[in-house]
Simulated scan of single mutants.
Amino acid sequence: MTHHVKTILANGIVIGILCSLIFAAGTWWRMQNQLALGDDAYRRGDFPGAVAGYESALHMYIPMHPAMEHAARQLWNIAEYNERIGDITRALIAYRSLRSSFYAAHWLITPGQDWIRRCDMKIAALAPLQQER
């Protein structure tokens, strides 16, 4: 291998690593921003804003990051609250949002399998109730 080829390969590796780091940092920043928007909307009682913020945070899926569990748990809490007060439509929106967020984060695996199963059970139980109205 000539010196010229080695230089090109080394530069390519450095550029690849830098691009990966920039992509990861951008994903982390967007996830944190959306999570903060969701938390702020949740505190204000803004249902659409909270669901959108948490859903968007989950779309920026970072494996094993505690924000993923936080966003999922908050969406679940929103859904359960609306279910308890009898707002089946909003409960279904939140359960479906949580489930679809993990499907959207699919890459080599689909994360959040337990959340997906729990949402599927809730959706199956609530969907017929919504149609009765």
Rank of each mutant, 00 (worst) to 15 (best):
His4Ala: 11
His4Gln: 15
Val5Ser: 12
Lys6Pro: 05
Leu9Trp: 05
Leu9Pro: 00
Gly12Asp: 06
Gly12Val: 06
Gly16His: 13
Ile17His: 03
Ile17Asn: 03
Ile17Tyr: 04
Leu21Ser: 15
Ala24Val: 13
Ala25Trp: 06
Ala25His: 12
Trp28Ser: 04
Arg30Ala: 09
Gln34Ala: 09
Leu35His: 04
Ala36Glu: 09
Ala36Ser: 09
Ala41Gly: 14
Arg43Ser: 12
Arg44Ser: 12
Gly45Ala: 15
Phe47Arg: 06
Pro48Met: 05
Pro48Thr: 05
Gly49His: 08
Gly49Trp: 04
Gly49Met: 10
Gly49Arg: 15
Ala50Gln: 00
Ala52Thr: 12
Gly53Leu: 06
Tyr54Arg: 03
Tyr54Cys: 01
Tyr54Gly: 00
Ala57Asp: 10
Ala57Met: 13
Leu58Val: 02
Met60His: 13
Tyr61Ile: 10
Pro63Arg: 01
Pro63Cys: 10
Met64Asn: 06
Met64Leu: 11
Met64Glu: 12
Met64Ala: 13
Ala67Ser: 15
Ala67Arg: 02
Ala67Lys: 03
Met68Cys: 12
Glu69Thr: 11
Ala72Met: 04
Arg73Gly: 01
Arg73Glu: 13
Gln74Met: 14
Asn77Asp: 15
Asn77Gly: 13
Glu80Arg: 14
Asn82Glu: 01
Glu83Leu: 00
Glu83Asp: 04
Arg84Thr: 07
Ile85Lys: 07
Thr89Ile: 05
Arg96Ala: 14
Arg96His: 09
Arg96Phe: 11
Leu98Asn: 03
Arg99Ser: 07
Ser100Gly: 10
Ser101Val: 07
Ser101Arg: 03
Ser101Gln: 08
Tyr103Ile: 08
Ala104Ser: 14
Ala105Ile: 03
Ala105Asn: 10
Leu108Trp: 13
Ile109Asn: 11
Thr110Met: 10
Pro111Tyr: 08
Gly112Glu: 02
Gly112Ser: 08
Gln113Asn: 15
Gln113Val: 06
Asp114His: 06
Asp114Glu: 14
Trp115Pro: 00
Trp115Glu: 01
Ile116Met: 07
Cys119Arg: 03
Cys119Ala: 15
Cys119Asp: 04
Cys119Leu: 01
Met121Tyr: 01
Met121Asn: 09
Lys122Ile: 02
Lys122Val: 10
Gln130Asn: 01
Gln131Leu: 13
